[in-house]
Amino acid sequence: MKPTKNNLNIYSLTFRLPIIIWQLLFFVGPVLFMVAMSFFLVKNYRMTEAFEFINWTKMFSKNYFWDSYWFTIIIAGTSTLLTMLIAFPASFTLAFKVSDNIRRWAIFMLIIPFFTSYLVRTFSWYVILAEKGVINAFFSYLDLGPFKMLNTHIGTLVGYMTLTLPLVIILQTVTMANIDRNLIEAAYNLGCKPKSIIQRVIIPLSKTGFIIAAVFCFILSFGDFVAPFYLGGSQEPTLPILILDTTKSGQQWPRAAVVAIVMMITLFSIAFIGIMTAYSKSFKK
């Protein structure tokens, strides 16, 4: 049975309407209200509804906003690049060097951390990376260190990877495992060296999946406040930390809304560009 054409009756609407109502109430409503809120005024710690551009001009004229903006983009971008590179050999191994059964088990294992408390895992890293933590205690046996890892970019990056690495490996593995093996064998039989098989066969064929993995990785790192706050030390606040500070301590919800909207626009542009490039070349063939 093919999907039936639009016929509006009680039965079909019973299934179609709940989510529309729910998302309008608790998703579209909040997001639109946040956009409206960015034009509200705050007087004597109370928010009054208005239509003024003062929050936008105030935020855009502040240096710390732009510093934080570029810092967030750079560190999330670095994290995306590193995560993709670190994940690749692992995904490659899972896709080509192990049996189907082991691959299934590995993916099974990799899904688990994605759905278990990121917060507790971050705290665990805090203890492991600390000045007197596990890693430095280990180094002291070798008469090395102590190395400062907490409150540095390394801390932030480790935190981001805790969040993104399992997902990126899953997406890369699934993409590469779906490549037609005959193509790789053909390249091999035609005398292609392993290195150029990776460069000229595997990577071009998995472009779409890789870009999607990178986009997800960027979105997750860009929007995360836990890693830069607890592991990165928050001296250089990222945009999520800026939202947090502005909302929690300053009572400046409208300005936090400005930051949030800028973040959303940035993410949508990056996701859009990513998806366009991911699907672009496949038309040319």
Partner: peptide, 11 residues
């Protein structure tokens, strides 16, 4: 990002 949803929901 959750932090954005959180702010929007709160407001």
């Amino acid at each position: 990002p959750l932090i954005i949803l959180a702010l929007a929901m709160l407001a």
